[in-house]
Amino acid sequence: MIETPKASPTVGLFVTCLMNLFRPSIGFATAKLLEDAGCIVSVPASQTCCGQPAYNAGDNDAARALAKQVITAFEDYDYLVGPSGSCMATIRHDFPVLFAADRNWRDRAEAVAAKSWELTSFLVDILGITSVQARFDAVATYHDSCSGLRGLGIKGQPRQLLAGVEGLTLREMKDSEVCCGFGGTFCVKYPEISVKIVDDKIRNIRATGADILIGGDLGCLMNIAGRLTRIGSPIRVYHVAEVLAETRLA
């Protein structure tokens, strides 16, 4: 399934809803990392959302409609890459399941799923990149977002890349693999439970003495960041792409 990549593969950049709206810098950082690695990056304008919110809410029809839109928008690229384990896990794992009863769309979904990658795993596992030119002066800790970690096996890739960032020290927190309490709409449907879970996460983040938190999914990061500022913590939050694409002092 995985072939040796072409020297200049075409990559359709998947623009996650949250990134588009709340943190465009992640998108530019992702594009920079991909282009530095020799990819030809495009951003299809016909994309919106991967449909995960509908799928997780039980509205499989809506999820299928969105999935078709993603498949159509991206099937002509060599790869589909996004800076989110969550959206990419939906595309990789859930799209084919959604079309289990529709042979034609299932084949197309499987084809797109097979070439869809989360950013750090694409850089490391597919392009074979072991380090990037970056400098970021900070002590950081890393939160493993659940979809990326358990859905796509993303654990070592971001750490390997971050290890090469000049000026950056990574200190592991306790329970880095435990959910932060975001869970998509969970965090607004069950806000009290969500806040309790993120408070546990923040206790572990603080215990490392890190001044920044890095992660690979903006949903989790917004949840943690929003709680950090609410309780007056100075710890800042970055997406792994932002750190890897950073060349100035933080």
């Binding site: 623009v15 588009n20 709340f22 465009p24 998108g27 009290e192 917004m222 960041a225 929003g226 609410r230």
Partner: peptide, 16 residues
């Protein structure tokens, strides 16, 4: 229970 981090004002797609 949380602040909502405010966006910078222009979306990624718009800027891109």
């Amino acid at each position: 229970g949380r602040d909502l981090p405010a966006p910078p004002g222009r979306t990624f797609l718009e800027r891109w």
